[in-house]
Simulated scan of single mutants.
Amino acid sequence: MFIKSFRPFAQSLRAPAAIILVATLAGCSTFSGFFGGSAKKPQPAELQPVVALVPARQVWSARIGEVTFPLQGNISGETLVVASNDGTVAALDTRTGRDRWRTSIGAPIAAGVGSDGKVAAVVTRANEVVALDNGREIWRQKLAAQAFTSPFVAGGRVFVLAADRSVNAFDGQTGKKLWAQQRPSEPLVLRQGGVMLAVGDTLVVGLAGRLTGLNPLNGSIRWEAPIASPRGVNDVERLVDLVGHVGRNGNTVCARAFQANIGCVDAQRGALLWTKPANAAQGVDSDERYVFGAEADGRVLALRRADGEPVWSTDLLRYRSLTSPLVVGRSIAIGDSAGLIHLLSREDGSPLNRLTTDGTSIAASPLLAGSTLIAVTRAGGVYGFAPE
């Protein structure tokens, strides 16, 4: 049965912020950014030497094409699936970085990659969902709107969250459209990946400022929990979107609403546990005690998962355009615009190590496959690091 195979797993990570808004419906205006004028951009914090208290070394590297869309790499077992602008989709062995398969879908990619270890799915800039089975295209279907969130593949189905606030479900093998859930759309949305994951037999999706639990069999709404509500007097001020990635521990899902709040929800009951004001565009991660995130100015912080109260914060990485964090052992790993992966202590935010890539921005939240930490850069470098 579908419900038995629709098992939960943690969704990995999100891309660095794209403060770009796009219209999704006919007649809507396009907004290209929040920040204008000639204000001088703050300079990134100067990095101090760091003692490698958590030793790690690069064990492999690979290359794909340039990555400027909101990439979400996907790890299933010992396979990493990644994609690049030019339509390349590649499955790499997480132990060696070698190709398991590599193909081109023949069209530029706008969102991806989702995979259940067999079927991988991406969305093209022409609004087509493309599904691959071990690197072989098996179907493609047209969407009614753009999509910036990686498809979610589970239970023999491919789920797609589009920018018009619709969720679409397709049969994983045939591409047949099974159902669609449409929520009221708004004039502006983020050109950035959103939230979609499974918790038990519920598909949990970020729709505007709400986490919403859907029945994956028919798309019916089981519950809604507000992380943030629209505010302000114009479309820009009223923009509310949940951004990936999220922190997941058991039934608790913690998420960020763009430049508004961080909040946690009991995804079994659909109950909001708490929200706290926070100002950033990147997602969060969590462990059994804390929720970790990076604010818009690069301040990295930890909140208590039980109630959202602050535990610690650090300014060591201010204005370094940080990714979403990833919990790794006793560290959190977070990428920056200089191609560095910073390992910070989960206990107090102190630096534990700093790993280098190719000098271009880290394109997505770091990933973890077993004990291998993986980073993908905007230039298309894929790097595997392992403890010494």
Rank of each mutant, 00 (worst) to 15 (best):
K4G: 13
F6S: 04
F6D: 00
R7E: 15
P8R: 04
F9G: 12
S12Q: 03
L13W: 15
R14T: 15
A17I: 10
A18S: 13
A18R: 14
L21E: 14
L21H: 11
L21C: 11
L21S: 11
A23H: 15
A26F: 05
F31L: 07
F31R: 06
S32D: 08
G33V: 10
F34V: 14
F35V: 15
S38C: 04
A39K: 13
A39I: 13
K40T: 14
Q43N: 13
P44H: 01
A45M: 14
V50I: 14
V51L: 08
L53P: 00
L53S: 07
V54T: 12
V59I: 14
V59C: 08
V59T: 13
E66P: 02
V67E: 01
G73E: 09
N74P: 02
N74Y: 02
G77Q: 12
T79Q: 13
V81P: 10
V82P: 00
A83R: 08
N85E: 10
D86I: 01
T88V: 03
V89S: 09
V89E: 00
V89F: 00
V89N: 02
A91H: 03
T94S: 09
R95M: 03
T96Y: 09
G97Q: 06
R98N: 09
R100S: 04
R102T: 15
T103H: 04
I105M: 03
G106K: 06
G106F: 06
A107N: 09
A107H: 12
V113M: 03
S115V: 10
D116H: 06
V119R: 03
A120F: 11
A121C: 06
R125I: 11
V129W: 00
